[in-house]
């Protein structure tokens, strides 16, 4: 199995990556920290899983060289499960990238990271309903403290591609 971490800059992908694989990629509090991809490995139930951290990107239509790396990596990993990391306090922008990736037919799981920040800002997200509408696993995480990461890993194992048309239908109920 292969997991690719995708998301906007500065949402905590590298922190998550370090947590998952025990690696030491640089994490800092400004966008554009990661400028190249890094591969790492973790064991899940006896299986070796490859995890890839890439630079943050706003969309699949790259604006700079760092974003190019991320998009290229995505397109080279057709078989990968994509964990979309979203800043829960800016959820709408994050969903844009999620939809783009879903539309391309990837198996997606969503990490609603920075959950603590969203709580501080009094933003309430109905995770269960979001999961129902999107049809993919959605897990709230706080990468710096490690909260939700176990669940994220176990939930992202059985995920399958979904159709946008179905999302349109489900959002109306």
């Amino acid at each position: 199995m292969k997991i690719l971490l995708m998301g906007h800059p500065n949402v905590g992908k590298s922190v998550l990556f370090n947590r998952l694989t025990g690696a030491n990629v640089i994490e800092s509090n400004y966008p554009g920290t990661t400028i190249d991809y890094t591969k790492g490995y973790m064991r899940v139930g006896g299986e070796e899983v490859e995890v890839i951290d890439v630079p943050g990107t706003f969309s699949l239509d790259p604006k700079d060289k760092a974003e190019e790396v991320a998009v290229k990596m995505l397109h080279e990993s057709r078989d990968a499960t994509v964990i979309c990391v979203i800043d829960a306090s800016k959820i709408e922008r994050g969903l844009y990238l999620v939809l783009e990736i879903v539309e391309e037919g990837y198996s997606v799981a969503i990490a609603l990271n920075m959950w603590d920040v969203a709580e501080d800002k009094n933003i309430k997200i109905d995770v269960v309903n979001l999961e129902r509408i999107l049809g993919v696993p959605v897990v709230s995480t706080t990468a710096i403290s490690g909260e939700g990461i176990k669940e994220l890993v176990s939930r992202s194992r059985g995920t399958a591609p979904v159709e946008v048309d179905d999302i349109f239908e489900r959002v109306e109920d």
């Binding site: 959820i91 709408e92 969903l95 933003i123 309430k124 997200i125 309903n129 959002v171």
Partner: peptide, 12 residues
């Protein structure tokens, strides 16, 4: 679509 989704799931 995002607008619709967020109306149903997010309260600020």
């Amino acid at each position: 679509l995002i607008d619709k989704i967020s109306k149903k799931t997010v309260t600020f």
